[in-house]
Computed example of a mutant assay.
Amino acid sequence: MSGDRRRSGNLLTDSPELYEARFPDPERLAGRWAEDTLRRYGAGPRVLDIGCGTGRDAAYLHRAGRAVIGADLSPAMLDYARERHPGPEYRRADLRGFALGTFDAVVCLDSALLYCHGNDDLDGFLGSCRRALAPGGLLMAEMRNGAYFLGRTDLLDTPADDAFTWRGTGYRSTTTLRVDRTAQLLRRTRVWTSDDGSPPVEQRSAWRLLLPQELRHFLTAHGFTVLALYDGPGPRTDPPWRDGDTPGVTADADRLHLIARLDTPQGVSAHHQPRTPHA
């Protein structure tokens, strides 16, 4: 593990190729789920993938015929996306406050929304989405479900170990989660070791623990109507989403999937009104 990665303390964010090796998605489930959802709710072609990471999902949406901008705060991720997943336009932006143009849909996957730790951060994100979306536009997000941790400790009791090999080097990680109730955060500590003789790397991060009804309140306050808010199926659920699956109706498991529509001001005609899917 290189010295640059030790200085940053974030092995995967600084090493996008390693990130994709650790979290492979050969079937492009996340991108397929996003495209299926956009079609299901009648979204127009202009899409912003905010928190796009390595660009895999943005590139899938681009190949599906959409005009996509992928945005992320990590320069390393953006450089990698431009080289390895071309097609979309990639721009650097903070999801807590951005102005990147006008879109028919904003997509925010892999718990990126939960890096809005405080209420001001969440207001900044939703306010930016409101200004970015055309009337009737869609906001869709996929994230951990804060409600799962009400009375459940299975993800907290035992550290999770993982191992994989990349370019001939074995990597191992031990991840510990704990709930910070005062800050309403799920705090993660991940310790990386490798068999190339590098010293261990400790990485710390946190996600906001949002409850479904709390999220509904924030969305309503920012002019959105929630069309669906459910735990599965999705690209990271067990079992995962498959082509033809319809949105669920419960919000009890550890993932949460959100689809919301920006309300159309009275007297304003939306360019492409989303439609509620049939049951």
Rank of each mutant, 00 (worst) to 15 (best):
T225D: 14
T220G: 13
L48C: 04
F23Y: 15
D263E: 15
R92T: 12
T169N: 05
L262A: 00
R261L: 08
C108F: 04
Q213W: 10
A71R: 07
P24E: 06
R188H: 11
C129R: 00
D72P: 08
P265S: 11
H117Y: 10
T264K: 06
D72S: 08
R6E: 09
C108R: 06
A221W: 11
R204P: 11
T189Y: 02
R63G: 13
R63D: 15
V191Q: 01
P26A: 07
H217Q: 13
R208C: 00
R275T: 15
A160H: 14
A253M: 03
A93V: 13
G267A: 07
Y148F: 13
S15F: 07
A251M: 05
L138M: 14
F149C: 02
M1V: 06
P240I: 06
P247T: 06
W192V: 00
C108L: 10
L29E: 03
G101D: 04
P86G: 09
L61P: 03
L126A: 05
L114N: 05
R5D: 12
T225Q: 13
R187L: 04
E89F: 13
L210I: 10
T237K: 03
D252N: 06
R63Y: 12
R92V: 10
A21C: 06
R216F: 05
P274M: 01
T189G: 04
S128V: 02
R255E: 08
T153N: 10
P240Q: 11
I259M: 03
L227Q: 05
P159D: 09
D123V: 05
N145D: 03
R172T: 09
T246K: 07
Q273M: 15
R5G: 06
L29S: 03
D196W: 07
S128I: 01
G55Y: 01
G118F: 13
D252Y: 02
M1G: 04
D252M: 02
D157E: 13
D243E: 14
S128W: 06
G51Y: 01
R181M: 04
F218I: 01
R56Q: 14
R84H: 11
Y60K: 00
M140W: 03
Q266K: 15
G44A: 10
G234Y: 03
R255Q: 13
D4E: 14
T276R: 12
A260R: 02
R39K: 10
T189H: 04
R208P: 00
T189V: 04
L114Q: 08
D4W: 12
A81N: 04
Y41I: 00
R216H: 06
L109K: 09
D104S: 07
Y115A: 09
V47A: 10
A253Q: 03
S269T: 15
G232P: 02
G101H: 04
D57F: 09
R208D: 00
L177R: 08
Q203H: 11
F149N: 02
D94Q: 11
N119F: 13
S194R: 14
F218E: 00
A21T: 01
